[in-house]
């Protein structure tokens, strides 16, 4: 307990910004805790870490953390982070996004940032809805579920975030949930240590809007559902596809060596400066 208190003291802007804006029982705080512990475990200096976010509930995370923090525009966090990384390759940059943020308005930036394989650690907190605006359907809302903008049920297919990052060329891709906190923390650590674009999907929930609309119960009930409905990749491989319907598959999807963007660009600089032809 003593060390817990110490960590919070070290990493949160505790005097200024609390209480936070998230609903009691929200999973975003759990992701924030996992990030703090990951950074601490890896022994990074706070002066080495930047956190960039977009817009939405997740977008408010950086304000609480004592890093270089930037709360940018909706969907564009990865593009801001790309510029910062190219200017400051030595920084560890964590990009926190929501599902609507990263995949709807930011979908184009998401696929291209993964494709460039630039050294960023992107965490998509997936609660399958637009929580801050009150429960509209997002690109990860499952079919048939209700949303304030899908009062007759959602007819769109949902986006598989990890699979998307994988085909776009990310170096590290993993999924866990806010129930499996230690696993999530481990993936964040692996992502931070990976040279290249790392994508961690943190499956969460929104009991305030989406949960209420779809009668999924309290935060505790939705947390329990994450526990009961999720399964590891290893276990999933043994199951027939029909039994995987509606299950959250957790695990590392990709962990590979891909040439990293800032390192490749450094070689261009060296070539240009040694008089190499453009």
């Amino acid at each position: 307990m003593a060390t817990q208190r110490q960590l919070i003291y070290d990493y949160l802007r505790h005097k200024k910004k609390f209480p936070n804006i998230w609903c009691a029982g929200c999973g975003i705080g759990i992701v924030m805790g996992a990030i703090i512990r990951a950074v601490d475990d890896l022994g990074y200096d706070k002066n080495q870490v930047a956190m960039i976010s977009g817009i939405g509930c997740s977008g408010r995370m950086p304000v609480y953390l004592d890093f270089y923090t930037m709360h940018t525009t909706h969907g564009r966090a990865l593009s801001f982070a790309t510029g910062l990384k190219l200017a400051r390759p030595e920084l560890k940059i964590i990009v926190v996004m929501g599902d609507g943020d990263a995949l709807a308005i930011g979908g184009n930036h998401f696929i291209h940032t993964a494709r460039r394989n630039i050294d960023l650690t992107a965490i998509v907190i997936n609660n399958a809805t637009y929580g801050m605006t009150g429960g509209q359907y997002s690109p990860t809302t499952p079919q048939h579920m209700l949303a304030t903008t899908a009062p007759y049920g959602n007819i769109e297919q949902d986006f598989p975030i990890c699979e998307l990052a994988q085909v776009c060329g990310a170096a590290f891709v993993a999924r866990s949930t806010v129930y499996h906190v230690e696993e999530l923390q481990g993936y964040i650590e692996q992502g931070l240590e990976k040279k290249g674009f790392a994508l961690i999907e943190a499956v969460s929930y929104c009991h305030t809007t989406y949960g209420r609309l779809n009668r999924l119960g309290s935060a505790v009930d939705m947390m329990r559902a994450l526990k009961e409905n999720s399964i590891t990749r290893q276990a999933a491989e043994k199951l027939p596809p029909e039994e995987l319907q509606g299950k959250i598959v957790r695990g590392i999807f990709v962990d590979r060596e891909v040439p990293e963007y800032t390192e490749l660009y450094q070689k261009i600089i060296e070539r240009a400066q040694s008089g190499g032809k453009a």
Binding site: R76, F80, G83, L84, A87, R88, N108, H109
Partner: peptide, 22 residues
């Protein structure tokens, strides 16, 4: 550093990120 981004929105975002980096 020169980078060709995926659109103009991302271009100015990257410019601002780089400017914040100094």
């Amino acid at each position: 550093v020169f980078i060709q981004m995926e659109d103009e929105i991302a271009s100015l975002a990257a410019v601002l990120g780089a400017s914040v980096g100094g």
